Simulated scan of single mutants.
Amino acid sequence: MTRTLTSKGAQTLSRIVAGAAAEIREHGVDEVRLEDVMARTRTSKSQLFHYFPGGKEELLLAVAQYEADRVLDDQQPMLGELTSWPAWEQWRDRLIVRYREQGTQCPLHILLGHVGRRTPAAQAVVTGLMHRWQAAIATGIRSMQASGDVAAAVDADRTAAALLAGIQGGVLLLLATGRTDHLEAALDLAIDALRGPTGDPPATGR
């Protein structure tokens, strides 16, 4: 959506997208009809096509962006406050809980599969998500460097990229196995490596 919306229009659009996301989570993308979304969101056909003239495919892409935003929102405020080792541990725990609750049914993964992962629009959703996620992790690393808890020689951007790659690998294995073991291992080893010789000893009891 590139056109300017009024406050009321933005609220209506958000209501349609959130309602469509809820329908998809409950019934699956293949079972959801535009009529179901209209009934759930109390919108008319003319309203829905005003905001999504491309119909269901355009709406699904908007829902994919909504779900991508939720990936980061679900990690807050921890992801935005990686300023101490306890904060990193809290973020790690929140991430594990988030994906454990999600299980093997990832709404974003399903939606992107439906709209076509290789389309420019779908790739933009994924690229935007990964860029923001990596940037948040890198900001946390730089904060720890400023306090002397992470060595200054650590490349924050490259380390954040590696940590994010480990998370994504763990998530893919979760989707295949239903287990978070690999995700937990990737997070634990990455955080312990960040501590290095200047940080506190690794947390126990994980």
Rank of each mutant, 00 (worst) to 15 (best):
A121M: 08
A121T: 08
A121G: 11
A122Y: 07
A122D: 04
A122R: 12
Q123H: 01
A124F: 02
A124L: 03
V125K: 05
V126I: 06
T127W: 00
G128S: 15
G128W: 14
G128Y: 12
G128H: 14
L129S: 04
M130W: 00
H131R: 07
H131L: 00
R132A: 01
W133A: 09
W133Y: 13
A135M: 10
A135W: 05
A135T: 15
A136N: 08
A136C: 07
I137Y: 12
A138R: 08
T139A: 06
T139V: 10
G140Y: 09
G140S: 15
R142P: 15
R142M: 15
S143P: 13
S143H: 09
S143I: 01
M144T: 12
Q145V: 06
Q145I: 03
Q145S: 10
A146T: 05
A146V: 03
S147L: 06
S147Y: 03
S147V: 09
G148K: 00
D149V: 03
D149R: 12
V150E: 15
A151W: 02
A151V: 09
A151M: 05
A152L: 04
A152R: 06
A152I: 02
A153V: 08
A153S: 13
A153W: 04
V154C: 14
D157G: 02
D157A: 00
R158S: 10
T159E: 03
A160M: 10
A160Q: 12
A160P: 05
A160E: 05
A161S: 14
A162V: 10
L163N: 01
L163F: 11
L163P: 02
L164F: 03
L164R: 00
A165K: 00
G166L: 02
I167M: 00
Q168Y: 03
Q168F: 02
Q168E: 03
G169T: 09
G170P: 08
G170D: 13
V171H: 02
V171P: 00
L172S: 09
L172I: 11
L175Q: 02
L175F: 04
A176C: 12
A176T: 07
G178T: 01
R179Y: 07
T180S: 14
D181E: 10
D181P: 03
D181A: 09
H182A: 11
H182E: 07
E184D: 15
E184V: 10
E184P: 14
E184I: 10
A186L: 00
A186H: 02
A186M: 01
L187Q: 14
L187H: 13
L189M: 11
L189V: 07
L189A: 14
A190M: 03
A190C: 12
D192R: 12
A193W: 07
A193T: 07
L194K: 12
L194G: 04
